[in-house]
Design a protein around this nucleic acid. Structure first.
Lengths: 337, 337
DNA sequence: ATAGGTTGTCGAAGCGCTTCGACGCGATTC
DNA sequence: GAATCGCGTCGAAGCGCTTCGACAACCTAT
């Protein structure tokens, strides 16, 4: 293993000079710089991460806490994680992958040990046990998701309230009057991961203004659960002509069931999905959807975290404006005639 | 930040004693140990990761290289990654998430800097550019996936050859004669990620023995691509009664298309999927499938890596035996009558 | 010519931990 | 009762880097 000292000797300068060449924290003459850089090349030198962390008390590592739950079908999580990792690298940071398993202890361990300089938390619950720790540590952090109390925190999320409202508007504009929301699995509501509730709130309040009637039903993914849920909805509100689906794994089942019952999409019923674009375009009907911008969320989280690490950057809530893309699954409500 | 020295002072012992309490590398009297442990508790001490890494030249970090491609096969990757992270923790290791973006350079950087003690590579291609580096470094590594030349490497993977064979056997036993394989997207074959080819080879050679006729067609996911592929298959081999689907995102489209054409599953045609169990059970028909054991792969990779880190543990190829679960999508071939 | 600034480089002091050899002490052995 | 051993503890060295103050050497302005 090549060390700084060896590089210094090879280049005929002192160790500190090499260090300054590497960090750029002091000016170095062009000649010396080149000599040092050549030596680094020739010897294949890589600074030792541990030594660097010890001496500078910065590890150049960002911790990313992902939810443990593999029960939910969550490509979005992976997409965010990859976006975070890729983006962090462009700022010279590596990403440490933590699962939710350790819970708040992981936060203590990571901040306490100086393993990471900062952290990003995904899948934040409304009243998350990790938040008090984050508030009292001076380690920068960014949440992806929105807890109930955001004071003293930086959060990045899709504006799910506006997303709900957008869905309501789109359906109202098309003349629908009775709409149903296929929500996430009950477990999601029980965990109080805010996004589902915020979507619903946004959708409900806009619907009230627009005169839409809304029926909300949580739904596990899969065909059986969807069949049951759909039957109940149509039983209670036979005139339902618009569906907003938040649970990704209920989308395809819903489409299949509607087809099976002879209800044409979008002629008889309209369907809006809240899902990544990829899912919307690959479904059996090209879905009108509000995209979940996974990449963007990952990118923004990193940007804000870096800003905090560099001193500027304040606590704030960053909500990404939702965008509704009209595809082939929504159309005018069938005339009552 | 509390240091070892402070703990030592608080407990009235020397720093080295505290260190030995922590590592257990020398025997410590029960009394001293308790005193030290209490001090650690009271002061809320966490060893500094950088200092530890520097002094011991071990970081207790495992690097995990995931593919950059978010285009495919994603849920499984996430599941493996989480399994790796969770499992690594039980052995006292954290996981560093690297994307494929840096390619071979990431390997150099990580091994060179001592950032990680070992690495796990996912999505290994047949002739992967990272392999030479792995072979020449003395840093332990485990691949998830199988390259062409496995000499000097430890690999963990599902036995895709046997998986293919198993599918052929199941269909043959049910009396099917003409079967079609819906493969992965062409890009997968072009990248020479071996698993798709190995599945096909296994399936083909067993089919030959059993007298099955096999038609293989790569297929992008989604409805349009699947519709095209299915039409071509039925055009070329109208008598096809068995399908083996390797591309997860082609499963549901296939089922929908068959339904639409009035071909009943499993009365008229049988379908086997190679996919995680969750997908198989949530599909519109409960699918007979060979599971992709993501958790198991992650777990095994970590176990073998730890073994190598601890000195025992040899280079070997670990193939997980496939298991076919019969569900509701396969049945006897329709009689020619 | 002289005081005052720059600029580029060096030496040394740590950062917080692990680990090696040394040592004191009570328990064994003949 | 002396020689031997193991156990539990300590002190010190050093892991490879960053960073601070010091200091030549040069350049400017008076």
């Amino acid at each position: 293993m090549v060390t700084l000292a060896e590089v210094a000797q090879h280049a005929g300068v002192s160790a500190s000079t090499v260090s300054y060449v590497l960090s750029g924290k002091r000016s170095i003459s062009a000649g010396t710089r080149q000599r040092v850089e050549r030596s680094i090349q020739e010897l294949g030198y890589h600074p030792n991460a541990g030594a660097r962390a010890l001496a500078s008390s910065r590890s150049n590592i960002i911790a990313l806490m992902v939810p443990l739950r593999t029960d939910m079908y969550v490509p979005v999580m992976m997409e965010i994680a990859i976006a975070v990792a890729t983006h962090a690298r462009t700022h010279g940071y590596d990403v440490l992958l933590l699962t939710g398993e350790e819970g708040p202890d992981a936060v203590r361990r990571v901040t306490g040990s100086g393993l990471a300089d900062a952290m990003i938390l995904m899948d934040v619950e409304l009243d998350d046990g990790r938040l008090p720790l984050l508030r009292q540590t001076d380690q920068p952090s960014v949440l992806i998701g929105l807890p109930a109390d955001t004071s003293g925190l930086t959060c990045v999320d899709l504006d799910f309230g506006a997303t709900g409202a957008l869905c309501a508007e789109h359906l109202a504009l098309l003349g629908h009057r009775d709409i149903a929301v296929i929500g996430e699995a009950p477990a999601v509501y029980e965990r109080h991961t805010g996004f589902a509730e915020r979507t619903l709130d946004g959708l409900r309040s806009r619907s009230r203004e627009l005169g839409l009637r809304v029926l909300h039903r949580p739904c596990e993914g899969g065909y059986d659960a969807m069949a049951l849920t759909l039957a109940r909805i149509l039983d209670e509100r036979p005139g339902t002509t618009g569906f907003v689906v938040q649970n990704e794994s209920a989308v395809e089942p819903l489409l299949a069931l509607l087809r099976q019952q002879g209800r044409a999409v979008p002629e008889d019923v309209s369907v809006i999905a809240i899902c990544p674009d990829q899912v919307a375009t690959q479904a059996s009907v090209r879905l009108t959807s509000v995209a979940i911008p996974a990449q963007e969320m990952g990118r923004l989280a990193v940007e804000h975290l870096i800003a905090k690490l560099e001193g500027h950057g304040k606590d704030e809530v960053v909500l990404i404006a939702p965008e509704l893309t009209v595809r082939a699954s929504t159309g005018p409500a069938p005339t009552a005639a």
